[in-house]
Write a protein that binds this DNA or RNA. Structure first.
Lengths: 142, 142
DNA sequence: TTAGAATCTCCAGCGACTGGAGGATTGAGG
DNA sequence: CCTCAATCCTCCAGTCGCTGGAGATTCTAA
């Protein structure tokens, strides 16, 4: 095996994604089928590391596999079929912005909880009220 | 049934959480066991609406049921056992801040994609690079 | 009073992993 | 060269967090 390629275990270590998960991503087509060695072992390169790290971060941020698949397609093909890609990208952008807004509201409340706690004061907590507030919800359908 | 109480279907409509999901949350203890009518139907009130909306938003933001359970416990008992609660709340706070940072990086890149697309320019996309960047990752273990 | 809507419980299925069983391959130390 | 732990392979069953269908009961409104 050339020194420039990685075994699945090395890829796992460098990305923080578990080995079975990497195989799972390949099985559902999020990662391309890895080239195999003569003894049938998967080989990876630096591009695999970047792609897999992207997938991992996006998953941690709560994006579904299908959304990630779309984002990857967009990224793989910049300046591609713009009309469709644009609609897609804008939808993702709106979703991302919505999450940021709601996370900031949550952060402010939890921060207040922590501060109140540090000062050892008994104060009421509004975490639920803040996040339950319909105004913070960007969905229309309810 | 008193007019001030809600049936499960009404709760579902007001929170955007599906009926089976509400029953599921009760089964795993995220929601308390709902009082029943004489004919065994669950009844809810305004507090249920707030609690359930909180759960919904937190889930959408990617928090696990276990984290939500902890947050709810904290919120239910403000000024409670401060030492433990403080550690917990601070951990959640760090996690929330990490998510915001990473979402902002993603937002900036997707925004650039959308803008590039609107101008109909063929330009390279750095979404993967940005999110794959180890610097944006606040985990230590890899 | 009776059709249809809403609820109940139970249970099976899905998305996204996660890990164990059983077997082959590799590569560092003796 | 040989061994043996480490690493990899495939297959498959299990977990978490829902989601929805089946069949039975209850409520509501004409």
């Amino acid at each position: 095996m050339p020194t420039s390629t990685l075994a699945i275990g090395a890829l796992a270590k460098r990305t923080g994604v578990k080995i079975p998960t990497i195989r799972y991503y390949e099985s559902i087509g999020l990662l391309p089928e890895a080239p195999r060695t003569g003894s049938n072992r998967r080989t990876y390169d630096e591009a695999s590391v970047r792609r897999l790290r992207f997938i991992r971060h996006a998953r941690e941020l709560g994006f579904e596999v299908e959304a990630i698949r779309q984002l990857l397609t967009l990224a793989d093909d910049p300046g591609g079929p713009c009309r469709e890609a644009d609609v897609l990208a804008r939808a993702h952008l709106a979703e991302i912005e919505s999450r940021i807004t709601r996370l900031e509201a949550l952060r402010d409340e939890v921060r207040r909880m922590v501060e109140g706690c540090a000062q050892d004061q008994v104060r009421s907590c509004h975490v639920i009220e803040v996040l339950a507030d319909h105004a913070h919800c960007l969905h229309e359908r309810h």
